[in-house]
Design a protein around this nucleic acid. Structure first.
Lengths: 150, 150
DNA sequence: TTTAAATCTGGATTCATTCCAAATTTCATG
DNA sequence: CATGAAATTTGGAATGAATCCAGATTTAAA
């Protein structure tokens, strides 16, 4: 149970974003290693993010967090398995990881390679066919491909 | 001009499916080279096919058609640009090419890597959001991801 | 502490795809 | 049917994302 003392002394996210990250890992059953905490802090900053492994590795380097590329890959996959991230495939040869794991779809800007969440729940798919025998629907992805030029 | 003699001697599609293939290439403005005709015959056999470059190259080899892998890649891209094929991306690191270029969507069986056209036009997407400023919708892809197990 | 298990790491490796420059083929023209 | 310029094909090298690996380090339970 949460006590008044907890409320007073518990650092707020603004004071120590590491708390959120560590907590998130704990709930997902992942050991809070230095690398995982660092990457979680970068990823779960409140915004909805869509990153590739290379991009995240670059951001970590810039922020002076020493993490190998192999670990970035491992971590992204572990986070995905734990339900903390969602993998989005829109381009051959490149995987994006989305910090928004709620039910939603995407815009993909061809050329720039930008991926955007489609806001709201207006978009709906109707008339879904039955899954072929021996299979079940794991997920329905809608990708609206955009090209430059109004 | 076509003469009676031509008509008598011209092989029908059943006799020589190369005719269809050559014709298709001509309409797309592509020179009917030996390799392109061979690949077109394999691809446009009446069925809806979903092939990777490696698969098509393998099929060509089996059929004793000598075509390099580089040419298979070139050809698949040229056919796609010409509107004869449609590229479908569902897995990072692998591109499928679909001989069905009409407006339709896909089932993707994770694990087996099988891609299936969704039959009919029952499936519809409603509530499409506006394209962000400076962009236009190039295509809307719906992918129903399936996993084994009813 | 101690220690087994989990994790991290650099570097090698894999795999799909693209690039390249030389060789071949196509096809319009003579 | 010859000729030549342009298009195409090709094997092999190069690229780039992602994975694998075995040794070094870190974690956390006892």
């Amino acid at each position: 149970m949460q006590t008044m003392t907890d409320l007073i002394h518990a650092p707020t996210p603004a004071e120590d974003p590491g708390i959120q990250a560590t907590d998130r890992l704990a709930r997902a059953g992942l050991r809070p290693t230095r690398q995982r905490v660092a990457l979680a802090k970068l990823l779960f900053d409140g915004r909805d993010r869509h990153v590739t492994a290379e991009q995240l590795h670059g951001q970590a380097s810039t922020a002076d967090m020493r993490v190998s590329l192999a670990t970035v890959y491992n971590t992204l996959h572990q986070f995905t398995e734990a339900g903390l991230l969602r993998e989005v495939v829109v381009e051959a040869g490149r995987s994006y990881f989305d910090t928004n794991v709620s039910d939603h779809h995407h815009f993909f800007v061809e050329g720039s390679g930008h991926l955007l969440d489609i806001p709201g729940h207006a978009l709906e798919v109707s008339g879904l066919p039955e899954a072929p025998a021996g299979t079940r629907v794991a997920r329905v992805d809608v990708i609206i491909r955009l090209s430059a030029g109004g």
